[in-house]
Computed example of a mutant assay.
Amino acid sequence: MTEATFDVVAIGNAIVDILAQADDAFIQEQGMTKGSMQLMFSPADADALYAKMGPGREVSGGSAANTVAGIAALGGRCGFIGQVADDQLGQVFAHDIRAAGIRYNTAVRAGEPTTARCLIFVTPDGQRTMNTFLGASQFLPEAALDRELIASGAILYLEGYLWDPEEPRRAMRAAIDIARGAGRRVAFTLSDVFCINRHGDDFRKLMADGLIDILFANENELLALCQTEDFEAAVERAAGQVPLVVVTRSEKGAIAVKGGQRFAVAAEPIERVVDTTGAGDLFAAGFLHGQAQGHGVETSLKLGALCAAEIISHYGARPEADLKTLAAEKLG
């Protein structure tokens, strides 16, 4: 096995987030489920909801893209594969991810639909409710994969959100084969309960077939995946199939299980939760960076908690503070 030249290579939706504040009444009036993500299947629906938004701000997003942005901010070497359209939002996304020092060479897609966008409504308690139009990202073909990039990453990181459309699902299956053929580890995040409701059988088969080395989930996602309401039973079931299971539990911190040994970390204290968008993405960033640098599970969990705390202290899912300095101060 050749030495990896990248720490993490991620495949995911290339999305531009548009964030605005909203109250609980608005969330209910629009028929949204607070704190969750729902898909919009037409640009007309996205335009109609966008027209109802208050003043917003545009920030490049996408779950896996947020994660590699966090890793890059920590000093890691990253690549990203995700598709945008040949439009203004596509240019915004490409500029932002390259400016973060991330290798990004995926060709743009001509014509309709537009670049993916996620309309995010943040309530006063910091909860984010997301409405995503996947646009060009949902047509990522296997032909767009940078095979050399995938094979050169120590860890391949995949997001469950992108499993929903058929074309990128095939691309990610191919990417798993490339990574495992090169002797690399594969990490997978379940992303959202709705992904599990639609594709849980696929995810469980990936685990049963031994294709996932690191699994990321929050508490609700793990329960849905393991089809139980017993958290401890779910942890035991997942850990029996995946070498390293990482579960975030909001204010209760996070746990990880590796080789039958359980580790835990408390949530990092902050003055005020402003926006929970990207909390799981940045937790994964800290954890994966720790793993790529050869740190143990406990240190990786601490890095995850630190990055998650930074991201929920402000709007948007890309780091604003110097994560490298914060990590040095926290961990020495």
Rank of each mutant, 00 (worst) to 15 (best):
P55M: 11
E329L: 15
P55S: 14
G280S: 05
Q83R: 15
R128P: 10
G183C: 01
A187C: 09
S63N: 07
Q138L: 08
P165M: 12
V246Y: 09
E310P: 09
V265A: 15
Q291T: 07
T106D: 13
A44G: 06
N220K: 14
A264V: 12
A328W: 05
N218W: 02
C226L: 12
P243Q: 06
L145E: 05
L331K: 14
R249F: 04
P269K: 13
R249N: 05
I97D: 03
G290Y: 00
V59I: 15
R170I: 04
A100E: 09
A107P: 15
Q241E: 15
G210K: 13
I155F: 00
T189C: 03
F216T: 03
S152P: 00
V274L: 09
G253S: 05
A151Q: 12
A279S: 13
A317C: 01
R77V: 08
A309T: 05
D164T: 06
L134F: 13
V242E: 07
A64T: 04
E229V: 13
A256S: 07
H295G: 00
A174I: 01
R184Y: 06
T277C: 12
Q38K: 11
R249M: 13
E159C: 08
M53P: 01
L145T: 05
F188C: 08
K52V: 03
A10N: 04
A208Q: 14
G210F: 09
L140A: 08
A182G: 02
Q261L: 14
E148M: 08
A174E: 14
R204V: 04
I196P: 04
G75W: 10
T299K: 05
D201W: 00
A10W: 05
C195F: 06
G12E: 01
A234F: 11
R237Q: 15
K258E: 15
M53R: 06
M1V: 12
A309M: 10
E159A: 12
L323D: 02
F93P: 11
G54Y: 07
S137L: 00
L74R: 05
A100W: 02
E236H: 09
L288P: 02
T67M: 02
A171R: 11
W163S: 10
A48T: 12
V59F: 14
N218C: 03
C78I: 05
L49A: 03
R198S: 14
R272G: 01
L223P: 10
Q291D: 11
D24Q: 08
G56P: 00
G296I: 09
M172Q: 14
E167C: 10
A110C: 10
L244A: 05
G259S: 06
R103Y: 14
L158T: 10
E298K: 11
C78V: 03
D202T: 10
E268H: 14
H314R: 11
V246L: 10
G111Y: 06
L282P: 04
G70T: 02
L326K: 15
K52E: 13
G35P: 11
L244W: 02
I102C: 00
L282C: 03
C78A: 14
A65N: 04
G31W: 09
V108F: 09
H289F: 14
A179W: 11
F263G: 02
T248H: 00
G200E: 03
V186Y: 01
A69V: 15
V108Y: 04
Y315G: 10
Q293P: 09
R117P: 00
K302T: 07
P113I: 10
V92N: 12
D17N: 06
T67E: 04
F263C: 02
E219K: 15
